[in-house]
Design a protein around this nucleic acid. Structure first.
Lengths: 183, 183
DNA sequence: CCTCCATTACTATACGTTTAGTATTAAACA
DNA sequence: TGTTTAATACTAAACGTATAGTAATGGAGG
């Protein structure tokens, strides 16, 4: 997630320093769902550089202080695409932050690929919902649920339902966008 | 969360080994929202023991293999209560797992304390919602939102609303339960 | 002009989680 | 009865995150 965020920002807005990335994350909407600590950013930058996904472009010196500016590498773009696709296709119920991040940068992928990934996620979530429904009926019959367990269950079920609806709406929107473009 | 889970289980079901804790987490409803890896359990057990929150009760030997059985200590019960209260009172929108865990074990706390904690959380979430609504109106006016950012926003907003509703329902249920008891 | 505070840019360390195991014992089956 | 598989019980190491800083610089106020 931190990785995707950094690669996405470097890809969309060009070369940046760790501090600038930090600023962007704090100011944009993303800070609502992604609380990325400075230390995590610098850690990720170091790793990404080691792996050759980003390149140290320049080091700006201001007096005694230095600022490292990183640039995304080809390998980084490839990884970014992979991360986006992964996050779009895997279920986002428990931890939706990576889906949100992926949506932020999804323009990096061709629409059909996005749709495929989202369809995969839809199937996954639908399966989870079905399994939950089934499991609940069994436990309700057995009377094996405390009041709070039942409340929790109901809440999770509602959350899953909402997430499913969200994905479906995204798919519909994208399909109509695609048709609009093909005209 | 792992800590709360372990302390809660040891408190409710008596002394157990790490493996038994693992089994309980896998079988119960909790595995739906809390994916606790074995290694995390053993790590937490070691830490809790070092801190004196749990006590190594016995070591059962079966041939060459040993099984460590832990018992909750007084300090552990105190910490459990604190963890529950904290999780009930802090906002659970981004990561509801700790709220769910706290609800699972909330019987450890007196109802008025639970209600106080939940009321605190309710205020927090309501404040977040108000702030979001305000922030969105500003950005909508400026037209500064991409389609996907808007979708994400709407989804988060809905999630927050649902969570607020959930907390409120819990409060109402608990209040009526309290009245029932006082008769 | 100089002091103080906020901003800039980054780091060290501890902590918890995840991955990927190992080794032993019990059960299943042939 | 021997072999293979599943269950039991736990560990080592790598990894990422969070806490809590540091030190330099720029600007504002007296």
């Amino acid at each position: 997630m931190t990785r995707m965020m950094i690669l996405g920002l470097l890809n969309n807005f060009g070369s940046m320093s760790g501090y600038e990335i930090q600023q962007m994350l704090q100011s944009s909407q993303t800070e609502m769902w992604a609380y990325v600590q400075p230390a995590s950013i610098y850690h990720a930058l170091r790793k990404l550089q080691q792996e050759g996904k980003i390149i140290l472009e320049t080091v700006e010196h201001t007096g005694l202080r230095a600022k490292a500016i990183y640039k995304i590498a080809e390998d980084g773009v490839l990884e970014l695409r992979q991360l986006i696709e992964q996050s779009l296709s895997k279920s986002s119920v428990v931890f939706p932050a990576s889906l949100y991040t992926a949506l932020t940068f999804m323009d990096e992928l061709p629409v059909p690929l996005i749709l495929e990934a989202l369809a995969k996620q839809e199937r996954e979530i639908a399966a989870v919902m079905a399994a939950m429904k089934h499991g609940e009926e069994m436990k309700a019959q057995a009377g094996a649920m405390t009041v709070q367990a039942e409340a929790v269950f109901t809440n999770i079920y509602a959350q899953v339902g909402m997430q499913l609806e969200f994905i479906r709406k995204l798919i519909v929107d994208l399909e109509s966008r695609q048709e609009g473009e093909s005209l």
